[in-house]
Design a protein around this nucleic acid. Sequence first.
DNA 1: GCTACGCTTGATATTTAATCAAGTGAAGCA
DNA 2: TGCTTCACTTGATTAAATATCAAGCGTAGC
Lengths: 302, 302
Amino acid sequence: MLRLPPLNALRAFEAAGRHLSFKQAAAELCVTQGAISRHILNLEQYLGAALFNRSHRQVALTVEGLAYLQETRAAFLGISNATARAQSKTGDRKLRIKAPPTCAIRWLVPRLGRYHALFPEIAVQLTTSHDALDFEHDDVDVGIHYGDKVTAGWQSERLFDEVLIPVCSNKLLPRNQRCNSPREIARYVLLHSIRRPSDWRQWLDAAGLKGSRATQELTFENSTMTLQGAFDGLGIAIAQKALVAEDIASGRITVPSEIEVRNSSAYYFVFPAAREKSATVRTFYRWVAEEARATRASVDAL
Amino acid sequence: MLRLPPLNALRAFEAAGRHLSFKQAAAELCVTQGAISRHILNLEQYLGAALFNRSHRQVALTVEGLAYLQETRAAFLGISNATARAQSKTGDRKLRIKAPPTCAIRWLVPRLGRYHALFPEIAVQLTTSHDALDFEHDDVDVGIHYGDKVTAGWQSERLFDEVLIPVCSNKLLPRNQRCNSPREIARYVLLHSIRRPSDWRQWLDAAGLKGSRATQELTFENSTMTLQGAFDGLGIAIAQKALVAEDIASGRITVPSEIEVRNSSAYYFVFPAAREKSATVRTFYRWVAEEARATRASVDAL
DNA sequence: GCTACGCTTGATATTTAATCAAGTGAAGCA
DNA sequence: TGCTTCACTTGATTAAATATCAAGCGTAGC
């Protein structure tokens, strides 16, 4: 029978010792710095020995603290490796993602490289489909769901709201130049997607052009192709702001009007609540939530 | 930054894997077996891999479980050793105990050998004194307190109540032979301790001999000497049942009357609440509580 | 002298873990 | 065949451990 110290306190100590800062350790472990302070106090009381010398605005390891840290880290490293091996054997070191095509291509794929760099041991498999997610039958771990509500029994994280804006190539309209009125926009070729036939209608309605029709229209198989058409200068497409935020920011594409339409739909990262505890799912969850936060920030900055 | 599994679940797994029984692991960790079951389920979900094969009334490690257990144990062993070293350096690997003399000599000392065998790395230092405990000034870690209440700010565990019974040598009265009446007892030489002048009075009162005086009396410096006098056949002493339970059970000493006096005093194991988290104190606490439980059981069995 | 910034700490809230008790299923026995 | 027993599971609840919030503290640096 082993006698072990409080293990969560030990993990806090390991992080604090590595950073030599309670604050940074707290950030790493996603808690407040007070929590770290308490953990370490607790461990010190357990040991009956000081681990840190506290001085103004910084902490330093004591001699005992340093020795303890090194031994502790070795042990945690062993646990970490063992855990990785146990997962990779029969465990879930692969992550199957299902997402709507446009969201996948324009948002997820450009970011997945970063994810893979962070977690190279996890094999990602991405499927795109417009069909509703069904974890019972789909053989999929997590998904991106588009809509205004989420099925009960799913864990979900709202990634970004649907905000429709018109976009077009710089060839069509010089960068940063706005059309004077929505009516002017309607005189261009309007690019549609079969999948989303009402987007332009929604935008035109919101722009005060209820019932009006575009002069010329061009319809594509899907939103990706529609956007590509806009990039190529064929006309003005209606796009989801979050999915073109970077193209706008970098100037690759122009927004000819400031009118935006926000509706109740949004993209959600979802997975079955039963898989909540899976390390792979949790890791991806945290990563995707952070990426979405960054995207929302850049959308807001436009 | 290390990614670690739920560490408390891991500890439960280590114990369960070692015992190959959730029930025994639960006993070792002082929790119910349901708690172990949940911990292991949690860990399995985290890993996405089964660690145990559950079959009827027994669990067996899976291949992955066995590998994981071995690596995990190595890491825990490292932590355990590191912790022991950290404690022994500047830490509290010594335990200073203060206890009333009779309790120390007759109860604690005979058991301390067992404690030392269990925890050889802890240096025990025992002081005996009738004075009230004072952790502020005494330079003592834990103590045994005699009385009917405990100072605020102390953590305490009641060891055993004070129950006064007469005892004498087999020479004086053959084993298991009772006196017919308390009055008969009062005709023997009654052995007193200066420290506890009212013990006999209490007992005689309770025996219905209010106001009566003993024929002959002998007074000793302290209870230990008084008891020794009884062992030697000098007369009948009044003793605390818990402190002579083993002598009675083994027949070394005789109880000449069934009349017992129970008062509100008791022996308490105490220590400053602030030291609650010290590993050394906690370990001793658990040990002493268990020993007292055994003593109470043997007292009750008399 | 003032501000800023990490750590500490008391009160409180939240989350996690434990308990309790009922349920399950198979071995062992009548 | 049917009953009992025993170890594990599981849903509901309780208890304990952790985290948060916000105020406090102390000094380096302005």
